[in-house]
Nucleic acid binder design. Sequence first.
DNA 1: AGATTGACCGTGT
DNA 2: GACACGGCCAATC
Length: 106
Amino acid sequence: MSLNDPMLAFTDNVYKLVSSIPRGKVATYQQIATLAGNPKAARAVGMCMSKNTNPKGIPCHRVVSSTGLLTGYAFGGIVKKKEKLLQEGVYFVHNRVDLSRSLWQK
DNA sequence: AGATTGACCGTGT
DNA sequence: GACACGGCCAATC
């Protein structure tokens, strides 16, 4: 079975996909949802993250909104997250991720 | 089983 | 660019 296998639970796919985002890249909630099998389930993706809140296994700081804006992430503030991503080599434009360059492409 | 919630997205004004 | 509205989905009362 593969990551985008519909027989897996949606949350399972989300979990695996997010944890496989390479360092220096970011993915959008919608992208994760699409890869997980439901292009419209971007919301559900976010909920799953908030439920787990497991930075050790899930790099949720690499997941951003479609506009590249850092939504969610309450581990000390958005600013902190931005610094963290910058440190990983993610391109930023003011307060947003430059999706055209740092978007995770499978 | 029904209603509410939430780390969302797209469109229109 | 900012704000409002509606839609869509899964988890949680």
